[in-house]
């Protein structure tokens, strides 16, 4: 027995054009409902959620709709004594929320308002002898954390503070038979991890480790008849993979290997006409995570109503042009 192809059918009445303003309104109103069940229950993702929401707004040119000083004040309150940032006040620091915090501060040109030396020291302390990174002091290892560490340091202009050679060696040791990457050595390939590893190698200037044709084949095979992309073979399509897969393809110079028009059709169909925002699939509930990756995907696909997005850091390109960060592309 085999697995039949898992896919969806786009409903005929699904949205076909970009509802730009509605998305801005959706993000702004999401941040207003701080006592909502949904909002409270996702507290463990707050810092990431703020990055997703603020970057969405920046990409549609409406960052001014949020209260800058309120946001920065919150981020500052989340920096812990060790230097890392927690997802929210009272929670523990983690690399996942630390990258989001640095990205938010970069969006607002406010990195200098935090103790950057402490952030760098903390990130350094999480690197292990094999080059991998712990997510926090409890020792979980994942290539997502390698990306977070390197991306943070690149944004802070301090990449030389860690052992980049070792960090690259670890990421390369997570490469699989299909040319793609997993969480740890031995782990199965996953598009999200591919994005992290390829992004990390781009920032480190070591993309030559990637077999671009082999990886490009695996990535473009993520496209299903509906036009949407899945994260692994035999899985359902999901808007967030429009980012993980597409950004990876862009970095390795193989973006033209997928059917762009069909993917655009799929992403647009995931919008909610009533509330604004994007869902994982047409007809599902929207959230800020899929909203950012829907917009960023459309930007990579050439939609000029959305600002150009940087494929490695998922931030507005115009903002990063001012920085000295070196991005390698194939």
């Amino acid at each position: 027995m085999g697995t039949s192809v898992k896919d969806i059918v786009i409903p005929s009445n699904a949205p076909k054009s970009l509802l730009l303003l509605k998305h801005a309104d959706y993000i702004v109103s999401y941040g207003d409902k701080k006592d909502d069940y949904e909002y409270v229950m996702t507290e463990y993702l707050r810092m990431n959620g703020m990055y997703w929401g603020l970057t969405s707004l920046a990409l549609v040119g409406h960052l001014d709709k949020m209260n800058r000083s309120e946001v920065i004040e919150f981020v500052l309150k989340c920096q812990q004594d060790c230097g890392g940032f927690s997802c929210s006040i009272g929670h523990d620091p983690h690399l996942l929320s630390t990258l989001s915090a640095i990205q938010i501060l970069t969006l607002y040109d406010a990195v200098e308002s935090v103790n950057t030396d402490a952030v760098v020291r903390w990130i350094k302390s999480l690197q292990q002898t094999d080059g991998s990174f712990y997510g926090d002091k409890w020792g979980e290892v994942d290539t997502r954390f390698s990306f977070c560490a390197v991306a943070c340091l690149a944004l802070l202009g301090r990449l030389d503070e860690i052992n980049v050679d070792k960090a690259v060696e670890f990421v390369v040791s997570c490469m699989n038979f299909d040319g793609a990457f997993g969480c740890r050595p031995g782990s199965e390939s996953h598009s999200g991890q591919v994005y992290c590893c390829v992004g990390m190698l781009s920032l480190a200037g070591r993309l030559h480790h990637v077999n671009a044709d082999q990886l490009g084949w695996w990535l473009c095979e993520r496209q299903l008849p509906s036009g949407g992309l899945n994260g692994r073979p035999e899985k359902l399509p999901d808007v967030c993979y429009s980012w993980w897969v597409l950004a990876s393809l862009k970095i390795i110079g193989r973006l033209h290997w997928i059917d762009k028009n069909k993917l655009i059709e799929f992403i647009l169909a995931c919008q909610d006409e009533e509330t604004g925002g994007f869902a994982d699939r047409p007809g599902d509930m929207v959230d800020p995570f899929h909203t950012l990756f829907g917009l960023a995907g459309l930007s990579l696909l050439g939609d000029t109503t959305v600002k150009a997005v940087n494929p490695v850091l998922c931030m507005p390109e115009e903002l990063l042009k001012k920085s000295k960060i070196q991005f390698q592309y194939l």
């Binding site: 869902a279 994982d280 007809g283």
Partner: peptide, 29 residues
Amino acid sequence: MHGRLKVKSTEEQIEAKKKDREKKLLLYN
């Protein structure tokens, strides 16, 4: 949030869900 279908509910259902969530929120907080 993955794979959560958006469904149209009656006002009664919305009210019941609201109450249930308020209770859960109180417990969580």
